[in-house]
């Protein structure tokens, strides 16, 4: 990133937010999202291509690699907008694939264009940020694997992490949000790199997942405020009951903390934080977003009463999404622990 002024950055983030309207039009209903739920592959390939055309999948890549060379501030703003609209196309996973291919120096135009979805299959167990290394170890929890055109698989070789293209017969499990996760035993194909560093890229994905959660909880909260302003019981608008006003005020504080956490983490990384400083910033944001995302969406259901417990009413879709995204790229517990292990001393 060049030394852009604060105003330039704010403008660039605003533009990215506006551009999100191409896929997530403001005020649009969630009809498209509902129609894709529990189908295969669970997202619309044409929209993934559109996201490629918008430059989103290569947003973080240098211009020389066909990217837009934008910062995490912009990437988080985008993820947040798509989270607010519950966009099921795997933005975070596809951005991660593009970044991994770029790091490997491999051909990446099909992935950056959204024509191929090649998720990175880096996990061999739940709730971890450790990269699976075994050549034949089954990989699991691959997001939207029902739409994968193949996989990127890291393999530990002679103390280094190599990257392969791989295929595999995936076992698909559906998720609460209508998407899916896949597990498979990799059949390795072409070796794309002999030595690749993935930690920083996974951290970016974790931060983007926090931003996606933030967008969802903001929207669910906005819907809930609308409801508190219109629903009436006992001859009064329920938003006049102080018990509910206090609950809403509490949720607002959770949102404010989450936004501060995500945005400051993005700023720290954009300012060049690496190593433990980067890990601590990302973990702080993801720990906050995972916990608050679940809490806020739960409370939104409660504040709606019976209507909140229907599938037809949109607020429940946000609860289901939070159930899926909260623990992706590490749960709150994992990130709290990692924060304590990496946070700089004397910063208290």
């Amino acid at each position: 990133m060049s030394a852009a002024t604060a105003d330039d950055r704010a403008e660039s983030i605003r533009m990215i937010r506006d551009s999100a309207a191409a896929v997530a039009p403001p005020g649009a209903d969630l009809g498209r999202i509902r129609a894709l739920r529990f189908t295969d592959p669970g997202f619309d390939r044409a929209v993934l291509v559109q996201m490629g055309e918008m430059g989103w999948l290569g947003l973080r890549l240098p211009e020389a690699q066909g990217g837009a060379a934008l910062g995490l501030g912009e990437a988080c703003a985008l993820a947040e907008e798509l989270g607010a609209a519950l966009v099921p196309e795997p933005l975070v996973a596809a951005m991660l694939s593009a970044a991994v291919l770029a790091a490997a120096g491999a051909k990446l135009d099909d992935v950056v264009a959204g024509r191929h979805y090649l998720p990175l299959a880096w996990q061999d167990r739940a709730d971890t940020l450790d990269i699976a290394a075994g050549r034949d170890a089954p990989r699991c929890f691959v997001p939207m694997a029902a739409g994968a055109d193949g996989y990127l698989v890291p393999v530990r070789e002679a103390g280094r992490l190599a990257l392969y293209r791989a295929t595999g017969e995936a076992r698909i499990e559906r998720t609460q949000d209508g998407g899916n996760l896949g597990s498979f035993v990799p059949v390795l194909g072409e070796r794309l790199a002999a030595d690749i560093a993935l930690d920083a890229l996974l951290d970016e994905a974790a931060l983007l997942s926090a931003a996606y959660l933030l967008g969802g909880m903001e929207r669910a909260f906005a819907m809930t405020l609308d409801y508190l302003r219109t629903r009436s019981q006992f001859g009064r608008i329920i938003g006049t009951f102080q018990a509910l006003q206090h609950r809403a005020a509490d949720l607002k504080m959770h949102l404010a903390m989450t936004r501060a956490s995500v945005e400051s983490a993005a700023a720290a990384l954009d300012a060049g934080a690496t190593g433990d400083a980067r890990r601590a910033a990302v973990s702080r944001a993801k720990a906050r977003a995972a916990e608050a995302g679940l809490l806020v969406t739960r409370q939104c259901i409660q504040l709606h009463g019976g209507i909140g417990y229907t599938d037809q009413y949109d607020v429940g879709l946000y609860l289901r999404k939070a159930m899926v995204v909260a623990n992706q790229y590490g749960s709150a517990t994992l990130h709290r622990r990692r924060f304590m292990a990496t946070a700089p001393e004397g910063d208290e």
């Binding site: 739940a126 709730d127 929890f141 499990e173 609460q176 739960r298 159930m323 623990n327 517990t333």
Partner: peptide, 20 residues
């Protein structure tokens, strides 16, 4: 009851999001 199920999600990793 709710806090117990909340804790389930917290420890389940990606399994927390499974439909089945």
């Amino acid at each position: 009851f709710q806090r117990i199920t909340d804790t389930m999600l917290e420890i389940a990793g990606e399994n927390a999001g499974l439909l089945e």
